[in-house]
Write a protein that binds this DNA or RNA. Structure first.
Length: 293
DNA sequence: CGCTTTTGACCAGCGC
DNA sequence: GCGCTGGTCAAAAGCG
């Protein structure tokens, strides 16, 4: 499947609003402010700062727009994937259906999952499946879906040499949800999680970081990713940067000035947009989310 | 020490 | 009734 034909996955985030300061050390804030004050009159300073503010605002808008486009592309891609998987069931499942249609008695996973409702018509279990791509070296059967699970069994099934793990929601017995996790026969790097039932409680890890969220540091900017029902969210935790900067420059009253605050914003924007890890981390966060959906 | 995971035993459904 | 299979139980082991 060539995803690149569906969406532009390149993350050209080379927005660089601060060419002006490229050759100077980032953290030498105070010395730059001193030079700044010497070279410019008050009016020129105000004009320059105003221009810089406008420029940074524009860059901020651009970045916001890019993120919005990326989220839209992600949603479109996800919808296409869902359509594809629903319209193109696996060959085995087709074969299973054919077998059952021809009254063949071979029992299968699909068959067995359909037997229970026959025994107990009152069961309102909802079956859903989640496909998760993992590292080939990863031998665990853990699917991070945001809920807490307790493993209560493992079994090697007939039609798959890989063991199937059985999990109950850790809120059981008040929450009746179960899940089965097994590696795909076709591609063992793919975990297939089958969910039975619906949770009667909220997702315990619906925090700002998110269930599968990852905390990371983009250069000097720590960030986290999360995914709400409306799509992926990348949270850049800029609040953690400020105390560090203030500590370095606490000896100067200038840190409270608008000039410093303006410069501070520029510093963070520059640090973020010039950081070569930003593109990588952003792409990793989004692609990771796509697989874990 | 309490909770979680592992794993062999056990149970139920189904076909023969 | 027997064998096969998927699913569950529960004692033991592991872990923080």
């Amino acid at each position: 499947m060539d995803y690149s034909t569906w969406m532009d996955t390149s993350l050209n985030l080379n927005a660089n609003p601060l060419q002006l300061f490229d050759d100077t050390p980032k953290n030498d804030v105070e010395s730059r402010l001193i030079q700044f004050g010497r070279k410019n009159s008050v009016n020129d300073e105000a004009t320059a700062l105003s221009e810089e503010l406008n420029r940074v605002s524009e860059e901020n808008k651009k970045l916001t727009d890019m993120l919005t486009v990326m989220c839209e592309n992600y949603n479109a891609l996800r919808n296409q994937l869902i359509d594809y998987t629903t319209k193109n069931p696996k060959k085995e499942e087709i074969l299973k259906k054919r077998k059952s249609e021809s009254s063949d008695s071979t029992s299968t996973e699909e068959d067995s999952s359909c037997k229970k409702p026959k025994e107990d018509p009152t069961i309102k279990n909802k079956l859903s499946r989640l496909y998760v791509r993992t590292e080939p070296s990863d031998t665990t059967l853990i699917v991070k879906d945001g809920y807490q699970w307790r493993k209560y069994g493992q079994k090697v099934t007939r039609d798959n040499p890989c063991p199937r793990a059985y999990f109950k929601c850790s809120f059981a017995p008040s929450c009746p949800v179960k899940k089965k996790v097994q590696r795909s026969v076709e591609d063992q790097s793919i975990l297939v999680a089958t969910y039975e039932g619906e949770h009667n409680h909220s997702n315990p890890s619906e925090t700002p970081v998110g269930s599968n969220g990852c905390n990371m540091t983009l250069g000097s900017v720590p960030c986290s990713t999360s995914l709400s029902s409306s799509g992926p969210t990348i949270t850049l935790d800029l609040t953690k940067q400020k105390p560090k900067m203030e500590a370095k420059t606490s000896s100067s009253q200038r840190i409270e000035s608008p000039e410093f605050q303006q410069f501070f914003v520029e510093q963070m924007a520059s640090s973020l947009t010039k950081d070569p890890n930003f593109t990588t981390a952003l792409a990793a966060a989004i692609s990771g989310r796509m697989y874990q959906r």
